[in-house]
Design a protein around this nucleic acid. Structure first.
Lengths: 163, 163
DNA sequence: CTCATTTGGTTGATGCATCAACCCGGTCGG
DNA sequence: CCGACCGGGTTGATGCATCAACCAAATGAG
């Protein structure tokens, strides 16, 4: 009905393959995490970051840098995680609360991380093999750089990310 | 704090690069679509499918096959799109309604598709270049196949997708 | 000193995604 | 026939992501 083609056929196919893979892999991993461990991918990301910190405690701000989330998403999500007992906010440094991994949160991440990683290996790392994996890694970095570049050069200064 | 490593270093790096790219590209494209045209990526996907159909009308079911969405997601989303005038549900075939692209929906997709495609080209297709793009396309298909395979072989029959 | 700005963070509203439950018209075994 | 099941579709509840607005401590220029 709209008969223009917007990418050539090979490009179109590759792009759509990529989109399909992205969706399929993401939903599969998310569902697995959810059903086996009751964690969302977001929970997982926070827990990984906290558990990799030597002290198990970070400022929300640092988590924001590590994950690249918006601050409001972070705030909302940390509140929900606190309610479930995975983390705790401690108002130790006068002003800003620190986010602390609870015993329960630590157990959760220890239980699910190796299994989750095994799945990533089975369905992604091993399927690609080392060569293609390396190519993809570099390509990913290039794309991220290109987007950063694009933002810097062609965006009006204060309007982040919309253009 | 949790000192086991779950993938080796190269694998870890490639995987995380991929995750970062996925997030960055997705949010960039989504934001662009939203701010310039008031469409979500989901809207876009539906509109593309409808506009590629010769008649501009499909059953919800066909859309489901094309997009791989859950039926309930489809239903909810189509209702929202109808409210905004992008599509219309017509109860022509006795039983199941057909989803029809409205004039407004057609205009929307015609306006945004080429610009969106150009952005995909600039930030993804051209950054990768034809060789890496081809590799990624194949790799994506392999991953999707691996997941399908996994579902078929190691899932109890009726429990789709959780394992 | 004072008032404006920035910075880190919270809140509320809205739209989106998912799950579970349900509905309804066919179909098929009995 | 009749009742069980099945496929396409809707609904409601819940959690998640984003935007815009707000808040309060710190900074800093006049």
């Amino acid at each position: 009905m709209a008969d223009e083609r917007w990418l050539d056929e090979d490009e179109q196919n590759a792009w759509r393959s990529y989109l399909r893979m992205r969706r399929t892999l993401e939903t599969h991993l998310a569902r697995h995490l959810q059903r086996e461990f009751g964690l969302s991918e977001s929970d997982f990301e926070i827990l990984v970051n906290l558990s990799e910190s030597p002290t198990g405690r970070m400022r929300a701000f640092e988590l924001g840098e590590a994950t690249q989330w918006e601050k409001s998403r972070m705030s909302h999500h940390l509140s929900r995680m606190e309610k479930r007992g995975l983390i705790r906010k401690e108002a130790c440094d006068a002003r800003y609360p620190e986010i602390v991994l609870t015993e329960q949160g630590l157990e959760a991440i220890r239980a699910c991380a190796p299994i989750h990683a095994a799945r990533v290996r089975d369905l992604f790392v091993d399927v690609l093999g080392p060569d293609r994996l390396a190519v993809l890694g570099e390509a990913s970095d290039d794309v991220v750089d290109a987007i950063d570049e694009h933002q810097k050069t062609s965006c009006p200064p204060e309007v982040r990310g919309y253009c």
